[in-house]
Amino acid sequence: MAIDKATVTKIARLARVRVADEEKEALAGELSNILTFIAQLDEVDTKGVAPMTSVIAQPLRRREDKVTDGGKPDDILANAPEKMAGFFAIPKVIE
């Protein structure tokens, strides 16, 4: 399966990663090579094999449904690139 420039544009958009137009051709080539490499898996017969969901044989633990941490608005906002009145600030999204 080869990836072309249009596909790079599409997945870059899905991933919300800006890719400069002049980089797309080279990137399409690299990604196609990687896809060819992983296409080797088609040779493996996996009929009836359940996909691995956890590498360790243990069920996810449950805990009591109660608050165990919190009340640290200053810590949460400490690394915010922009904040305002105790909130994260972002560009305007509604007109």
């Binding site: 997945i11 991933a15 990604l31 996996t46 094999v49 996909p51």
Partner: peptide, 30 residues
């Protein structure tokens, strides 16, 4: 990092998930 994010986005995207990601998880089990 960008290359891996794009590959990951591709193999998880609609229409490819079973062929790539689920297939890989089956081989991983083997």
């Amino acid at each position: 990092v960008r290359r891996r994010i794009l590959i990951g986005t591709y193999v998880l995207s609609a229409g490819y998930y079973d062929a790539y990601y689920l297939k890989a998880q089956r081989v991983r089990a083997l």
